[in-house]
Nucleic acid binder design. Structure first.
Length: 517
RNA sequence: GGGCUCGUAGCUCAGUCUGGCUAGAGCACCGGCCUUUUAAGCCGGGAGUCGGGGGUUCAAAUCCCCUCGAGCCCGCCA
């Protein structure tokens, strides 16, 4: 059974039958939302999908923690932003001025990527929720049970204990907007007194003040309780024992009197070859949009669908990238093919959970590997399609979706070659014959090949075989002959599989080039 | 110090929850396919003490205990 379905079963079993199950993901938009945050969202989305797959209603909510305080200035932001420290993220201005706020600046591109990857969660903002007073009751409860909270949190804490004058809430000063406030007393009813560094002080009525926020450890379970969250995954930094997920589960039960949620720890995501945790300050963040610029969204989904959350996921952008694509195509073929039942069942959810286009027949599968060659020959999609047909990669009748996919892959392959392909597979067709000296045998062989291809159309295999025959006839070492072919075409000692490569090129161009020596 | 995850073929991993036929896949490798496939061929093949030890069981990669190794997390960074 697929891991997402296993979670779905557990949710139903432990939380009971419900009209609708709520699966939550959440991110603090205090910097770029990277591919690790993407895992948070897609892990949630897939479990919600698995619930639907089993015939239940589910909702994926994504919480933007834009009410968290602006804690430190990220490295890519002007240093004078230190003046905003203490404000909630949604009130900090966008350093580039293109969005309403600092938070929006990072939220918007992430939402776009989620959408491209087939996810449409309900996006909620913590700032809105607090402003609307959704957590007012929980604030009251938390203040009333302050001693119990301190006791509970202290029992989980190794080092320094929480002091008795601790409060489970912080106050964003209504005058300066920052949380540089110190709570001085709570009367046990509704009056909370505090003073701010800016000089402002008051006794606020917690039934009316909409600038009081629960502290993180309490905020999280409060939200679970309030929104009826059934499931939420979290990164392993939160999942550690005594961590916020752990104390959250205790708090929701002992303070808010609700059952624990189904939690799940997931491993980190990184680029193959990279090490360490991603962080914007280290400058090693990989954004979902980075991956989506070279990989189709269903293939990206496939990576997360097939990798259990507890497994570290290393995304390869080097040559292994091509293998992932091949693998995806195989899974797709198997899904639509008449393979033996067993194998199909195994692959079914893998593909179903990845496929966001709703394909119901096998779409065209232009090999990404070959596309990486073609896009270096031409940027003309029609010509690429012509070559793909001629080379037998795709059938002659194409649907609109087939053409769309080919266009997409061509665009992505071009990006991949430009951004990530190793030098070995990069080449450039030489517009003029390079000034090089070839041996008599090489010249002769090129001439014979040019005569051959001018005379008739050969398949890759035929041409390939003939090249070897020619080499034997001259005679010339195949290796030396291939060297000549690549040298005169792309100025390198090696290149794409010769026969398919030659067949993909304009015939006249090749003939003329081979004869110019 | 506390905790989590992982350790299965050369490499990347399935399989472990619900113990059961000769432990699988992809890649790599080797061999053959017309003396021949540089970055899309085809067919076949070898290969694993399932980290180690002990226990439970008719039966263990799978469950329990111990142990070794690797990686990672630990007061609002997924």
């Amino acid at each position: 059974m697929h891991w997402a379905s296993t979670f779905a079963e557990r949710i139903i079993a432990e939380r009971g039958e419900k009209k609708e199950y709520v699966c939550e993901s959440g991110v603090t938009p205090s910097g770029f939302c990277h591919i690790g945050h993407f895992r948070e969202a897609i892990t949630t989305s897939l479990v919600a999908l698995a619930l639907k797959d089993m015939g239940y209603n589910s909702r994926h909510i994504h919480m933007w923690d834009d009410y968290d305080r602006f804690r430190k200035v990220p490295s890519n932001v002007p240093a004078n932003y230190s003046e905003y420290i203490g404000l909630p993220d949604y009130k900090v201005p966008d350093p580039e001025g293109c969005h309403n706020s600092f938070a929006d600046h990072f939220m918007e591109p992430f939402e776009v990527s989620l959408s491209e990857a087939g996810m449409k969660p309900d996006f909620l903002r913590a700032s809105d929720q607090y402003k609307n007073g959704i957590y007012r009751d929980n604030i009251k409860i938390s203040l009333d049970k302050k001693e119990k909270l301190i006791e509970l949190l202290n029992s989980q804490r190794g080092g320094e204990k929480i002091a008795a004058d601790w409060y489970p809430v912080s106050v964003y000063c209504p005058k300066c907007g920052k949380d540089m406030t110190r709570i001085t007393s709570f009367d046990g009813e509704y009056s909370l007194s505090y003073s701010c560094k800016c000089g402002f002080q008051e006794t606020a009525d917690i039934r009316k003040a909409n600038y009081i926020k629960l502290k993180w450890r309490v905020d999280w379970p409060s939200r679970w309780a309030q929104l009826g969250v059934d499931y939420e995954p979290y990164g392993k930094d939160h999942g550690t024992q005594g961590g916020s997920a752990d104390t959250g589960q205790k708090i929701i039960q002992e303070i808010f009197n609700k059952p624990p949620i189904i939690g799940a720890t997931y491993e980190f995501v990184s680029l193959k070859g990279a090490s360490g945790k991603m962080s914007s300050s280290k400058g090693n963040v990989v954004l979902p949009s980075d991956i989506l610029s070279v990989m189709e969204p269903d293939v990206l989904r496939y990576l997360f669908v097939k990798t259990k959350p507890t497994k570290e996921l290393k995304i390869a952008l080097d040559l292994d990238f091509l293998n992932v694509y091949d693998e995806f195509d195989r899974v797709e073929t198997t899904y639509f093919g008449d393979e033996e039942i067993n194998k199909r069942e195994k692959y079914d959810k893998l593909y179903e959970f990845s496929n966001i286009w709703g394909y119901n027949t096998l779409p065209a599968q232009p090999s990404f590997r070959f596309m990486a060659v073609l896009v270096q020959i031409t940027s003309d999609v029609d010509r690429i399609i012509k070559i793909l047909k001629k080379e037998g990669h795709i059938k002659s009748e194409l649907s609109e979706t087939d053409v769309e996919r080919i266009k997409t892959r061509a665009r992505l392959a071009a990006n991949w070659v430009k951004l990530y392909a190793p030098d070995m597979i990069k080449f450039e067709l030489l517009t003029e014959p390079p000034k090089i000296e070839l041996s008599m045998e090489q010249k002769e062989a090129l001439k014979v090949i040019s005569d051959l291809i001018q005379g008739e159309d050969l398949t890759d295999v035929e041409l390939h075989n003939r090249i070897y025959e020619i080499a034997t006839g001259i005679p010339i070492e195949p290796k030396i002959l291939f060297g000549a072919i690549y040298q005169v075409l792309i100025g390198k000692e090696s290149g794409p599989k010769a026969a398919a490569f030659i067949n993909a090129l304009e015939k006249d161009f090749v003939v003329e080039r081979f004869r110019s020596y």
